[in-house]
């Protein structure tokens, strides 16, 4: 059972979290200027790195999204950030 830090609530069990998206993929828009390939890349072609990774997670109990930096191999949690524009 991993523990993740929510920037708003602190360290909690992983069962309180949902993975949302890999960080660093801005939504391509407006739709009319986005090619099929670009859209498919946004939806499906993620890096899924082995090792250091930045991901968006949702803390289900407070409903805040945040950025989690972790190592997918060692399961080490490196740090967490609030979304740009938010305050913890």
């Amino acid at each position: 059972m991993q523990q993740f830090p929510c920037p708003f609530c602190g360290l909690r069990n992983e069962t309180e979290f949902h993975f949302a998206f890999e960080a660093g993929h801005p939504r391509p828009e407006p739709a009319k200027d986005v090619s099929d390939a670009e859209w498919a890349k946004y939806l499906y072609l993620h890096k899924a790195p082995k090792g250091k990774s930045s991901e968006i997670w949702l803390h289900l109990t407070c409903h805040e999204y945040f950025i989690l930096h972790r190592d997918t191999v060692t399961r080490e949690v490196l740090s967490c950030d609030v979304l740009p524009g938010a305050e913890a």
Partner: peptide, 8 residues
Amino acid sequence: ARLEDARQ
């Protein structure tokens, strides 16, 4: 969750 995503 989707509403919160768009909100935040």
